Simulated scan of single mutants.
Amino acid sequence: MTRLPRLALLAVAALLAAPPSYADPAAEPDLTPLVLAQRTCGDARSCRDAVILWCNGYRRADGDNDGIPCERVCRSRAQVNEIRAQIGC
């Protein structure tokens, strides 16, 4: 196998492995730089911000493991689950 076909196969594999795009742009999460730069629950301005923060790896957001991150801004598990469904988390 020559070098060019291997590179072509790698390129095709990379395209197939790419994450799927959102069918509905309105459902795409609002991952603004401000939200992604947040580091703690104190920085979350809304429950949506808190859920995005939590879904992007900030596990301390749900310190008591009740499924509600940043309880200062998120009031219920139903609210959190609704946001998670909207943003695909």
Rank of each mutant, 00 (worst) to 15 (best):
M1R: 01
M1P: 10
T2E: 04
R3K: 15
R3Q: 15
R6I: 11
R6S: 09
A8V: 13
A8D: 08
L9M: 15
L9T: 13
V12M: 12
V12W: 10
A13I: 12
A13H: 06
A14D: 05
A14P: 02
L16F: 07
L16M: 13
A17C: 11
A18V: 14
P19C: 00
P20V: 11
Y22D: 02
A23P: 03
P25H: 12
A27L: 09
A27E: 10
E28F: 00
P29T: 03
L31Y: 03
T32L: 03
L34N: 00
V35N: 05
L36F: 07
A37V: 00
R39Y: 07
R39M: 13
R39D: 12
T40Y: 06
T40K: 05
C41S: 04
D43M: 10
D43E: 12
D43G: 13
A44P: 03
A44K: 03
A44E: 03
R45Q: 13
S46C: 10
R48K: 14
R48Y: 14
A50M: 12
A50F: 12
A50W: 11
I52Q: 11
L53A: 14
W54S: 09
N56I: 02
G57A: 04
G57N: 06
G57K: 11
Y58E: 14
Y58H: 14
Y58S: 13
R60A: 14
G63C: 05
D64M: 08
D66F: 03
D66G: 00
E71A: 04
R72V: 14
R72K: 15
V73K: 08
V73F: 09
C74H: 06
R75N: 08
S76L: 03
S76C: 01
R77W: 08
A78G: 11
N81H: 01
A85M: 10
A85N: 12
Q86W: 01
G88S: 05
